[in-house]
């Protein structure tokens, strides 16, 4: 059963009715095409008006939607000849982070990304996409390898945050994040980052430094989860809706704040309702951004990347 969010219910109910009517008309050999067309139009109008006025809290729900396509889906849709590469070569292999090489539009690229699960089993085995230090170090190892072979890096972000636990602390979660930030800022090949779902704080940023930062239309990127923010600010996690607004965590808000470069459109109703179209829209954006970066000499690429970071939150005085 697909998960239906509360605000999706009105048009999902209409869509279900359309399915019912269609099979009913087929069974009884009745011509209900006028009614069906009418209902379809109404469903679409409803969907459009709901999606035009999504609140930040609703965006959070969409970004976390269990049926939303994840890193593995986009890897399947966008990259050919993909070979997964495992391990950080020093401690272990983190199933919450995917890494590998493949072809995008004929060109060899390195792909890294967070892996959330899609059911209880895979959620548990992948730790809900929350990386341990070894996962972040695996990604870094593969990015340095990409630098050696001169191929671009595509990083797909979808995580509630870095893992919090004893082992992660013992093995240097902070150190792993910090190293990734420094190395990614200076990597001599193009890096394109795409937030495809949830961009949770330091664990997201650890794969999130690049020449272009893209966010899918209904993804979020935040310094803290709205629930966490609400419980710190108001000692009340149920005020997450207010916190989601205050944090300016939507793709649209972050574009206007100058934190990201592009919002990648999703099919009406969100990526989870039509993963294939979502994949095609992402492919178009990636191809365009890669083309714009491909002729820059490595030195200039790194210089521009640093200059962009340097301007983030620049203050006078």
């Amino acid at each position: 059963m697909p998960t239906v969010l509360d605000f999706e219910r009105p048009f999902v109910e209409l869509e279900n009715k359309i399915v019912e009517l269609t099979s009913f008309s087929r069974e009884r050999e009745l011509d209900l095409s006028d009614e069906i067309e009418n209902l379809s139009r109404r469903a679409n109008e409803l969907k459009r008006s709901i999606f035009e006025h999504l609140t930040p809290a609703q965006k959070v729900q969409l970004a976390r939607h269990p049926d939303r396509p994840g890193t593995e889906d986009y890897v399947r849709m966008l990259f050919q000849d993909f070979v997964e590469l495992h391990g950080d070569r020093s401690y272990g292999d983190d199933p919450a982070v995917l890494g590998g090489i493949g072809r995008f539009d004929g060109q060899a690229v390195t792909v890294v990304g967070h892996l959330k699960g899609r059911d209880t089993m895979t959620n548990l085995s992948r730790n809900f996409g929350m990386a341990h230090p070894e996962g972040l170090r695996k990604a870094l190892r593969l990015m340095l390898q990409a630098e050696k072979f001169g191929r671009p890096v595509i990083s797909l972000i979808d995580t509630p945050g870095a893992h919090c636990g004893i082992g992660a602390e013992e093995r240097g979660q902070s150190q792993a994040i910090a190293q990734n930030l420094l190395r990614m800022s200076a990597l001599r090949v193009p890096i394109i980052v795409v937030v495809i779902g949830e961009g949770g704080s330091g664990g997201a940023l650890a794969l999130g430094v690049g020449d272009r930062i893209l966010m899918q239309e209904h993804s979020i990127f935040s310094v803290i989860s709205p629930e966490g923010c609400a419980s710190i600010l108001w000692k009340d996690a149920s005020r997450a809706r207010e916190a989601a607004e205050a944090l300016k965590l939507t793709a649209q808000d972050l574009l206007s704040l100058g934190i990201i470069d592009e919002v990648v459109p999703e099919p009406l109703g969100g990526a989870h309702r039509d993963p294939e179209t979502a994949g095609n829209l992402l492919r178009e954006a990636l191809a365009r951004q890669l083309a714009a970066l491909k002729d820059l000499p490595p030195g200039e690429l790194v210089q521009r990347r640093y200059a962009k970071l340097r301007e983030m939150g620049r203050l006078e005085g």
């Binding site: 205050a246 300016k248 934190i259 640093y306 340097r310 939150g313």
Partner: peptide, 13 residues
């Protein structure tokens, strides 16, 4: 918010 988070990348860089 995110203006603070990106300071991590800015300082590391």
């Amino acid at each position: 918010g995110m203006v603070a988070l990106v300071q991590m990348a800015k300082t590391a860089a």
